[in-house]
Amino acid sequence: MSDRYYRSRHWLALREATLRRDPLCVICARAGLVVAATVADHIVERSRGGADDLCNTRGLCASCHGQRSHGGEAAPKGCDASGMPADPMHWWHGSTGSRAKNSWQLSGSDRAHHPKRISPPSESDFEAI
């Protein structure tokens, strides 16, 4: 961090406002994780013309900021509500990086070849005992 701006009063105030607004890492939060934000990150980097403004900052944890600083956007961590990895490029989503379909979302011809057939719950599954 050789840029003198990051030692200025403006940056310190902007950093404080960003972390007050985003107390949790916004990338981890998208994946359903609760991780404290410790870094105020420029969404569009200053070197690429990003503004030194609250609307161009977000709170990140040190891990997500480190990933972003070394090659782009950090991958979301954890799993979504269905149990699939939050990172769309995870190998469980297939080689295309697109979300894999559940077996009940497959067409009839595909369903017959699906190795692990899972049926969605029916109303009878929820009957009172």
Rank of each mutant, 00 (worst) to 15 (best):
V44S: 02
R58P: 07
G71F: 15
N56A: 02
R48F: 06
G71S: 10
C64F: 14
H42N: 07
G49W: 07
A62K: 11
S63M: 05
A62L: 13
E45C: 04
G66M: 07
S69Y: 09
A40E: 00
C64P: 12
T57M: 11
L60I: 11
E45F: 04
D53T: 06
A51R: 09
C61S: 15
H70S: 15
G71T: 11
G59E: 08
D53S: 08
Q67I: 10
R46E: 01
L60G: 14
V44G: 04
V44F: 04
C64W: 14
G72E: 01
S63A: 12
R68I: 00
C61E: 14
T57L: 15
S63V: 13
A51P: 07
R58T: 14
H42T: 07
S63C: 01
G72C: 08
G72F: 10
V44P: 01
H70P: 05
E73Q: 14
V44L: 08
T57D: 01
H70W: 12
G71Y: 12
H65I: 03
E45M: 00
A51I: 00
R48P: 00
E73H: 14
R46I: 04
D41S: 11
G49Y: 07
A51F: 02
T57E: 00
L60H: 12
D52F: 03
D53A: 08
S63P: 00
S69W: 09
G66T: 10
A40N: 04
G59F: 03
T57K: 08
R68P: 03
Q67M: 15
D53L: 02
H65Y: 07
